[in-house]
Write a protein that binds this DNA or RNA. Sequence first.
DNA 1: CCAAAATCGTTGGTGCGTCCAACGGTTGGT
DNA 2: ACCAACCGTTGGACGCACCAACGATTTTGG
Lengths: 169, 169
Amino acid sequence: MQDPSEEAPARWESLPSWLLTQTASHAHRLVTEGFSSVGARGYHYRLLATLERFGPASQAALGRRSGIHLSDMVATINELADRDLVERAPDPADRRRNIISLTAAGKRQLRRLEKRLAECQDALLAPLSPGERQRLTELLSRLLDHHNRRTGTPEEPWRGPGSARAPSR
Amino acid sequence: MQDPSEEAPARWESLPSWLLTQTASHAHRLVTEGFSSVGARGYHYRLLATLERFGPASQAALGRRSGIHLSDMVATINELADRDLVERAPDPADRRRNIISLTAAGKRQLRRLEKRLAECQDALLAPLSPGERQRLTELLSRLLDHHNRRTGTPEEPWRGPGSARAPSR
DNA sequence: CCAAAATCGTTGGTGCGTCCAACGGTTGGT
DNA sequence: ACCAACCGTTGGACGCACCAACGATTTTGG
């Protein structure tokens, strides 16, 4: 979008879905700008953060944990590997797999991205008081939770106390 | 996204920008599904609604009022015109322009889309009480307003009481 | 033990929304 | 008569999310 203007408030502009997607688009813009100022994009951050949180893993596992589609992991890892922010090495134990790990440079990049991200949150919520920010966060969490439950995200049907996946025989 | 799962709440999942964009993506999904069930998409609705609100106009004017980029107006109008939901006629008074107008079928389609849209709002906000819905809407409006002010949207710099554009020299 | 099923990485393509650059045709101010 | 501004159109781009299909490999269950 670029220019509603004309001092004309169209009908749809007060719909929650519109408010949500438009505000989100501002949020996205802020974050994208912040990231691109250090040559990164959203997927890069998510992948780096996932790597730091869970440690080295195969591309498929990273995809599951970060919510990035397998198809998109390839390009994302390529881009990060080209800049030596992650390392892609074959898994000796399973020749189908690559093991992706975070490099020192990758960790530094992650720190930068987190910094930007924090600044973005502040810019995003600028007009709200701390209390209002909290309430907004709470409401959004509830909504997100609700819709995640009833859409795909459930996943991981069962996997009782027994450690890693080793369902049956 | 498709499957965070793994019962692992990643760091970024509590950031307002994340909550916002993810919730928005659910909203967008709901709306898109609702629209596509009658063979339409977001731009179609916005264009039809703009037409009904302001009456027939040139593509450029519609673009400004609906916030749809001129480049995208072309395809949008093509799609709607192919289905006889709008009519594209040359403006006799200005041969650069096309005058786009809503047909009776277009109006009916708009009614259908509005119906879907209303259902979507309800599905979207399902877990919230009326009061909470109101508060969410209010908070989002404030945010959107804030960011619209400081981003492009201002537009229409001046255009004093003097009717149409006739700035300087 | 071996064949069928499942997984992994990869390529290439889809869709939506948003935006940009460039073009030729038209108009209007001077 | 000129040139600036506007109009519609085309073709491209990007980010995010997804799907289908493939070869290579591993796991499985009969």
